[in-house]
Each structure stands twice: as C-alpha cells, then as structure tokens.
Design a protein around this nucleic acid. Structure first.
Lengths: 192, 192
DNA sequence: TATGGATTTCAGAATTTTCTGAAACTTCAG
DNA sequence: CTGAAGTTTCAGAAAATTCTGAAATCCATA
C-alpha cells in the first residue's frame, strides 16, 4: 500500500469497518480511496495505491456499482473506466440508506408478511405469530416514515435534523393551537 | 432442527440474515427463537430446538448478552439460566440502534476526529482531509439528532413517526405563525 | 472440602468468504 | 481479419469465521 499517511489511516479504517458494514475489506478500502481522491481513478491506479490484485479490484468495483456508491467517468481518447464517488455527502447518505433498506429490511418484511398469512396450528404458533405481527407493524411504521422523509429536499431534511427532539415542543404547540381531537398526544399506540 | 413450521421459517430467516446484520447465523437463530417463545428458554432447550452444539449455544448467548438483546430469568430452585427477549418491540429497537451506533458509527467518528486534528502535508492530503471533514460533519449531525430523539418516550416517538414528512407542513405553519427571527427556514445550518 | 449438576473455554475441524493468477472475452484501430 | 489494450470471469489458494467436543471451571449443597 502506497498512500500518504492521513489517506492511509482513512483507507485502512474503512477496510476494517467493512465487515461490520456488510461489505468486505477491499470494497471498503476502494470506496474510501475514491472518496478522498480529487480526480477519478482507474482500476490500475487502485491496484497501485492499495497493493491488491487486479481481479480483486475489478470484482470490488462491480460490487460498489451494485451498491450505487460510485460514478463512472471517461476521459477523451481513453477507453479506461474511471471511478469517483458523488460529491454530495447527503446524496451518499440517501444511497446508503436505500441500499441497506433493500438488503437488510425488505427481505425480512416479505418473510414476515408471508408467515402472517398462514394459519398457526398450535397455541405456541399463535403466540409466535402475534410476536411476529408486532415486529412487522413496527418495521412497517419505520419504513413508511423513511419513505416519507426521503422525499424531502436536503434543506428541509437538514432543518429537521437540526431541530432534533425540539420537534416535540412544536408538536405540543400545534396540539395547543389546533386543540380539538385530531390525535391524542402520548397515547403510544393507535393509528393506521 | 425441531420446530413448528411458522417458527422454523422465522428462525431460518433470521439465521440467513444474520450475516447481513453483523451477527452470525446461530446468534440470529437463537434470537429469533427466544423472540417467538412465550416462556424463557434454557440453553439445553435451545440446543434441542435448533440442533446445534451446546458450546455454540453458550458462545452465542454470550454474544447476545453483549448486545443487550436478551434478558436473564430464573426459576425458583433451579440454577439454570433462562433467556428471553424484552416484550416491547420499541425497547428492542432502541437497544438495536444504540448497539449498532456503538459498533458501526462511533469508531469511525473517532478515527475521523483524529485525522482531522493532523496537519496534511500535501495538497492531495488537504483535499482528502476536507472530504473527511464533510463526512465528519454529517455523521455528527446525525448522531446529535439521534441522541436527541432517543430521549423521547415511546408515545411521542410513535407520534413523530406517524407524522412522517407531514412534519414539514408543521414546520411551515410554525414559520408562518412565529414569523420573526428565531430561526431562518431553509438555511440548513445553525443550532447548538 | 468433596460432589455433582451446570456452564464456559478453547484447540482444532469444518465451513464460508475473500483474494489471486491465468485464461477468456471485448472492443477498437490498423 | 489481426492484434493490442483493457476488462471480466472463474477455479482454486489463502484467510477468516464459525462450530464442535473434550476438558476445565464454577458453585451450591452436603
């Protein structure tokens, strides 16, 4: 590996964390390298920088493309593919959230749905199914919220984030103003 | 493996997803089994139900305890440990969020902080460092928001989730009513 | 402090994942 | 059509992780 010190720390860290994030070491390192590089890099430059095999780079770039985490660039009169990451960290965040949902949540949701459609054939099964229903309801709630929030433009999203828990003050204020009915605060359940 | 069909589907699915979630197959299966079981189970019952070795169960329960995902129970006049999961899915969600943050985010945040304190010794390094600063700022923002939101009681949290993107209507309304000063809408920065 | 039921540890076996080098493929220029 | 530059594929090597059985440990009781 042949990198300046700060870059190297960053790249090595992404490599180590890779497994916790559901990608592997090489994929993590390549992503980190592209992220901190000003100009797009081609496969051989990555081989050079990280000291890994050409084929590993090829596979890993393919994986990063499957995650939609890299962009393809071309130079005039050069057949090689060059890769970068998007500039906007908010965009990266959105992609990451989307892909992780797709891989880590959606399959479970669909398994749960399938199980919930079946008839349990013992009291134990019935109990278990009820627990699964609770889990399903919670995940549905979260993904619905996520689907909503991801539509927001970055400005509003940042605003919301900045507000933090302060949002409840706003909710309280709203309840006071709107007053009647629409929703009981603090009831915890009920809706949908 | 010796389980009724719906339970088995659920357990097997958690086993398969385990690797994507940063735990291993056995840990996933044991968690799933405890989750759908009405009564707490002891290690030997888990061995029986899942058909895996006693030592594997012991290791995996230890892992689940490290994740704070299981509760220990005791029966009178029985020395064995019995395990369950918390009843409240919201509580489970909180634990999961906390633990994943601890394992997946915090280490990166601290590496980034360390790198940002150093002096880059080339223009490339300087560029990279600026990118890392952007990443750091975003993660800080998200974790600050998370630290805020996790303080909310479940009722309010559920309320907020139910509101979804509708929250921005509320924000707009507030801006219209409060009108003057307190905060510039859409600026994206500022607070704390 | 000896006994025995229960749990934990740990070295190595089994399995899975990652990585490599060689070969195959693709595309374009001459 | 041929060959050069580039890329991908894939079988097996290397590495990492997971799982097991046997031995060690723990601990309440007598």
């Amino acid at each position: 590996m042949n990198l300046p010190p700060l870059t190297q720390s960053f790249v090595l860290h992404f490599g180590e964390m890779g497994s916790r994030w559901g990608i592997n070491r090489t994929v993590g390192q390549i992503y980190a390298l592209l992220y901190v590089s000003e100009a797009p890099l081609c496969a051989d430059q990555i081989v050079e920088a990280l000291g890994i095999s050409r084929s590993n780079v090829s596979m890993s770039l393919r994986e990063l493309q499957a995650w939609n985490l890299v962009l393809l660039r071309h130079l005039p009169d050069d057949r090689r593919d060059f890769f970068t990451t998007p500039d906007d960290v908010w965009q990266i965040l959105r992609t990451l959230a989307e892909e992780r949902k797709k891989r880590e949540i959606d399959p479970t949701l669909s398994v749960l749905r399938e199980i919930l459609m079946q008839e349990p054939d013992s009291p134990e099964e019935r109990f278990g199914q009820e627990r699964m229903a609770e889990m399903h309801a919670l995940i549905e709630r979260l993904t619905t919220w996520y689907d909503d929030v991801k539509q927001l433009d970055t400005g509003r999203l940042a605003l919301l984030l900045g507000l933090g828990a302060g949002i409840t003050r706003l909710l309280d204020a709203k309840d006071r103003i709107v007053g009647l009915g629409r929703r009981k605060p603090g009831s915890g359940e009920g809706r949908r």
